[in-house]
Nucleic acid binder design. Structure first.
Lengths: 189, 189
DNA sequence: GTCTATAGGGGGATAGAC
DNA sequence: GTCTATCCCCCTATAGAC
């Protein structure tokens, strides 16, 4: 009763967990296969190379984000949008996981070219959404209009990526919550 | 004419570059040996295991930081201390490198136990310095006393770690500068 | 301190049968 | 779609000569 791409989906889900737990180079096709009760050659059937798997993972993140962002369109509140967005990173931190940007980013120097490009595209997509959200919030008086919009956007992106990482290193998700609390305090009017 | 531990030092320096460029698992003892014109067995003479090398790297970071922090004692200005501290992360971003926390942090799930502990100790050392610096700055009226001190500290740590990473991913060090500019704007009175 | 040589295990990837 | 079998490479680490 399996759908055609059930295995493919299962591979992606396992790979995502490994990625966020210990990085892209932390897992092998053999690991994925063993977890799913198949052989590594079968994983290669779905993803011809690890590069292809990395690209697929990143495209998945981007599509998920875009779907979510579309669902929030016309929410009418920049503050509510950002709070909801932060919830995702908070949940990562609680599980001791980090975001895709941080996971791939640390190994950037040895990522295949196409993976690098997809990673850049993902970050760009998120950056544009944050920027637009802050801009709309400034106009509505919900977001402090201190400093340049691009600088404010950069701080938000840095804080979420760094927040999940320091939470994991210190072993306490609370530190991510703390960083996000202060971020809201300096952003919101 | 080499000092006794010249090779050891050279190994550490090469390893640091690999680490900040592509992570702890990105380089092997063979890589280090080849770069230095020796054999991998000789690297093992200086560092019996990769775990030992990781620990030595982190202890080096911590000692460097502590020396630097001691040199700034009684500088009299929290703003000046933080600006100087941010210069380090700015320089990493310009080289396309990330900080040790980000480099080790992404692979946290598969780091040897002692490396994890040293990483925690390094972050804790830095966290305490940031906290104390912000606290002193608040008393002197240099730092905004908005919100909890611990939340403010967490945001600063998250921003520097995340800032260097997004700079590398986007390929532009400017985004780290932007994040740090806004960080100063929201911290300084 | 550095070497040669090697053990013992994983890694990505492919060919070809079923 | 999944399998067996395999290639060829890299990895960490060690033994023992020099």
């Amino acid at each position: 009763m399996k759908a055609v791409s059930d295995t493919r989906q299962a591979i992606l889900e396992r790979a995502e967990r490994y990625l966020q737990d210990a990085g892209f180079s932390s897992f092998s096709f053999r690991d994925l296969a063993a977890d799913l009760g198949i052989k590594s050659a079968s994983v290669h059937y779905h993803f011809p190379s690890k590069e292809a798997l990395g690209v697929a993972l990143l495209q998945g993140y981007r599509e998920s984000f875009e779907r979510w962002a579309a669902s929030r369109r016309d929410s009418g509140s920049a503050q509510a949008d950002l709070v909801e967005w932060l919830r995702y990173y908070r949940s990562l931190a609680r599980k001791g996981d980090i975001c895709a940007g941080g996971a791939f980013g640390a190994e950037y120097g040895e990522l295949p070219e196409r993976v690098r490009r997809e990673l850049g595209a993902l970050l760009d997509t998120i950056r544009k959404w944050v920027r637009a959200t802050l801009e709309a919030g400034r106009k509505r008086g919900e977001i402090r209009a201190d400093g340049k919009l691009d600088d404010q956007t950069a701080l938000v992106l840095a804080a979420v990526q760094g927040g999940t990482q320091i939470a994991r290193i210190t072993g306490s998700p609370k530190i991510a919550d703390a960083a996000f609390e202060h971020l809201k305090a300096v952003l919101f009017t």
